[in-house]
Simulated scan of single mutants.
Amino acid sequence: MRLAPALAAALLWVATLPAFAVELVMVEQPGCAYCRQWDREVSVEYPKTAEGRAAPLVRVQLREVEDSGYDLARPVNYTPTFVLVEDGIELARIEGYPGEDFFWGLLGMMLKAQTGFDPVAASTSQNEG
């Protein structure tokens, strides 16, 4: 089955739009040493965690932030910057990468304060069930 060119183009355009709901947007850029450090320390386990399931990661290049469709409270000046968004609107952010332990703690506090989701409680209940 072959799609008409206009339909194929429309589907491709829709596929590039942010999915929305609650997401963690990681703004990065090539050559960013702290982005590479986050990738080494966190990226593999992130989608397997309660935090990763509550706020799936979306990566956006710094030069593409303005065209990403996200409504950010202010410009992104540093990479990595982690922006918690709901329905495309910024709720909170972490500027820079403070190391793995601080990252998880800050992210957990952001999720609980902004969405009511408690990753500690979610992890505990999942381990019990």
Rank of each mutant, 00 (worst) to 15 (best):
A113I: 11
R59L: 07
P30W: 04
F102R: 03
K48A: 02
A33K: 15
A10C: 11
F117Q: 08
E100Y: 08
Q114M: 00
E23L: 09
A73R: 06
R93V: 04
G99S: 04
T16V: 13
D67N: 13
T81K: 00
W13A: 15
N127W: 12
E66L: 03
F102C: 10
R59T: 07
L72C: 08
V65C: 00
E51V: 06
V58W: 01
T79G: 03
F103W: 02
P56Q: 15
A50D: 06
C35Y: 08
G31A: 13
D87N: 15
G31I: 13
D67E: 14
E128K: 15
E66Y: 10
M26F: 05
T115H: 06
P75I: 02
S43L: 11
E64K: 01
Q61Y: 10
P5F: 03
L57Q: 04
F102T: 08
T79A: 04
E66H: 03
S123R: 09
Q114L: 01
E45Q: 05
E66D: 11
V120P: 09
Y97L: 02
D118H: 01
Q37Y: 07
S123P: 01
A10V: 12
V83P: 00
D67F: 11
A9Y: 13
L12G: 13
E95I: 10
R40E: 12
A9F: 13
M110S: 00
L57S: 01
A121I: 00
V65L: 03
G105L: 12
G69E: 15
P56K: 12
E41Y: 09
R36A: 12
S123D: 11
Y70M: 03
I94V: 06
G129D: 07
Q126E: 11
C35I: 07
E100R: 15
L84V: 08
V44H: 14
W38I: 06
D39N: 10
F82S: 01
M109N: 14
T115Y: 00
P80T: 09
R36K: 13
D87K: 15
T115E: 00
K112T: 08
G108V: 00
Q61L: 11
K48S: 04
S125A: 14
T49L: 01
